[in-house]
Design a protein around this nucleic acid. Sequence first.
DNA 1: CTGAAAGCGCTTACAG
DNA 2: CTGAAAGCGCTTACAG
Lengths: 361, 361
Amino acid sequence: MGGAMPSESAVETSPPVLKKEPRPVNLRDVAKRAKVSVATVSMVLNENPRISRATQMRVQQMIDRMGYRPNRLAQSLSSRYTRVLAVMLPALRHGFGDAYFGELISGVCDRAGKLGYKVMLEQAKPDFVKNREHIAIYERRYIDGILCLGCNDRHHFLADFSDRRYPLIVVDNYLEQWGLDYVVCNYRAGTEQVMNYLLQLGHRKIGFINAAPEVRTARDRLEVFQQRLRLAGVEPEPQWIDDGQFTEQGGAEAAQRILEASPDVTALFAGNDKMALGAMHYCTRRGIRIPGDISIIGFDDMQQAAFVNPSLTSVHLPLYEAGALACERLIERIRGKVDRVAEVLPTHLVVRESTAMAAQR
Amino acid sequence: MGGAMPSESAVETSPPVLKKEPRPVNLRDVAKRAKVSVATVSMVLNENPRISRATQMRVQQMIDRMGYRPNRLAQSLSSRYTRVLAVMLPALRHGFGDAYFGELISGVCDRAGKLGYKVMLEQAKPDFVKNREHIAIYERRYIDGILCLGCNDRHHFLADFSDRRYPLIVVDNYLEQWGLDYVVCNYRAGTEQVMNYLLQLGHRKIGFINAAPEVRTARDRLEVFQQRLRLAGVEPEPQWIDDGQFTEQGGAEAAQRILEASPDVTALFAGNDKMALGAMHYCTRRGIRIPGDISIIGFDDMQQAAFVNPSLTSVHLPLYEAGALACERLIERIRGKVDRVAEVLPTHLVVRESTAMAAQR
DNA sequence: CTGAAAGCGCTTACAG
DNA sequence: CTGAAAGCGCTTACAG
C-alpha cells in the first residue's frame, strides 16, 4: 500500500476492465440485515397491513439505508402485473412527429407516471399485426394494457379484443362494432359549434375538407355538417365535400378542387388544422384573401393554430385530458375496478382571425 | 351432456365470469410434448449452435404448433438483458407534441423494432431526477440503455453516466464535459450553409434569433454566426442577437425586439423553424413583407416549413436518421460491440420562398 | 404478526 | 449433443 505504487494512481491509469460489477442489493440482503424473513420485507414493500407498525418502520429504514430497489422483473414474474402500458400508434410514416398524437401521448405519460406506470411505444405495422404481436405483448408479459390511438374500422385486429380478455382502450375514437372501451372527444358537438358559428356569420355555401371515412368520428363530423346545413335550409352539394387525407398537401389540393368546382363557396371547414393550413396556403397563393374572401376553420386547435397567418379559428379538442383520462381508466380496468369505459369529453370553438362574416358577392 | 341444457347455449347466455384463464403454454409444456429437456427448448429458442439440426427442427415445430411465446420477464430475469430501451425527454410541458422530438423518436422506434427492442418513454422531471430514477430504471431492470433527447449542460444528473457503467447516448447534442456518447447533426456546418447563402444574397445586417445557451449545439450556431459575419467584414451588433426560447411566441417577440432596435436588418435567422414561424407572423402583422422587405430562414426543416406562407427556407436536419443511428449504436454499446459513440450527421439547406436578395434601402 | 417453502418461467454452467 | 439442477429475485398461500 502507498509507497512506490500508490493504489489510487494505479486505478486511474489502468482502466478497470474486469471490475466486478457489484451485485445490487436484493430482498434477501435486506432481510438478513433487518433480521426478518424475505416475506416480511416483501410485505413491507407492498404495504401489506398484516405487518406491525414497528417492524414496518424498522424494515423500511433498512431498505432506505441500503438503497434497496426491488427488481421489477422478479416482482412482475411473481405477481400478476407488469405496471407497463403500451401506447399503440397506427403505421404512419414518422408517426410520432405529429402534434395530434403528441398531445394524447403527453396526457398518457404524465398520468401514467403519477400512477406508477411505465409507458411503452408500439406501432401497428402490418408485420406487427400479422405476427399477432398485439396479443403477444400481453402473453409475453410486456404490458398490462393498451391505449390505442388513431385506430379505425379497418384495423380488424381490434376484433381480437372484443372478448375483453386483455384490457384495451380506444383513445379519441370509438368502434362500437367490437364493443371496445373508449375515451373520445365530442366530435359531433364540435362540428355543431363550427356550423352554428359559420351559419351565424351568414355562410351558406360551405366547403368541407374531411378525411378518413373509416374513422367513426370523421363520419360523425360529416353527418353533422350535412344535417346542420339542411336544418338551415341549405342542400349540401357533393362537390363542396372533399378528402384532404389529414395532411397539409391534401388540404391544399382539396381546397383547390372545391373552389374550382364551386367558386361561390364562402367558407372552408377542415377536419383538422393541418388540412386547414394547407387550404390557407392554397388560398393565399391564389390571391384569395382570408377571411376577406373566404373563411377557413380548423379542427383540433393545435399549438400552431394561434401562430399561423392569419391565426386559425378551430375547434379545441381536449386531447391531453383525453390521453390522461384514458390512461387512468385503463389502469382501473386492469385492476378490475371498472368494467366498461365509455367517456365523452367536451370541445369548444376558439375564434381567431381566419373567419369573418360571409363576403357579399 | 346435451339434452335439456346444451352446454353451448349455457356458455353463450351466462357470462363466463369466473372462466379460468387458461395458463399460457410454457417451456416445460413444450419440452414435455417434444420429449426433450427444458434446456434444449431454451437453446433452440436462443439459436444455440450446440443443438443438432434434427432436434432444432423438431422442437421448433412443436413450438410453432403449440403457439409457444416465451415469457420475457423470465427470460430477462435469467439473462443479462431486458431488450428495452428508454427514450428520455426533457421536462417540457406537453413535450411529445413537438415535431422535433417526434422525428427523433420515430427514428428510434423504427430501428428498435427492427432490432427486436421495445421502447419505453421517460421524462426527466425534477422528481424523476431527485429520486434517482434515471439510475433506478437500470437497477430495477426496466431497461438496458437510455437515449437522451433534448438534454443540455444544466442536466447535471447526466454526470452520473460519466463512469460509463450504464449505456446512454445523447441524441442530437453533445456534452463533452461528461464524456458521454453522442449522435449529433452538424450544427456548425448547417449554420455555415445559412450564412454563406445569406451573405451571397447580399445580406450584411442579419438578425439571429437563437435560444438555449445551455445547449452546446445552440452555442455552436452562435459562434459560427458571428465568425462568418466577421469573415465577411461585418461586426455583428449585440442587438441583432436575441433569445426566442424555441417557441413561436418567443420567436415573434425576439423578431420585434431585433427589428425595433435595428430596423435596417434585412434578414432574420432563427435557430429553429418554430421561432422562424413566430418571426414571420410578427413581420406579416407589421406589414413587413417576406421576402420583399426581409428574408427569414429557419433551422430543422420540419414538415410544416413547406406549407406555411411563404414557405420557409430552412436547414434540414436528418433527425429521423439521427434517432435510428443512435438507437443502433446504443444497442451495440449494450452488447459491448462498441465502446465509444461519437457520430456527426450532415445537414443541408432547403431554399424556399422566405428568402431573397437583400432589399436595397 | 412472522417465517419457511413453493413457485413464477426462464438461462446457464456443469456433467455425461 | 443433451439433461438434471441451480439460480435469477421476487410474491403468496400455508403454517404456526
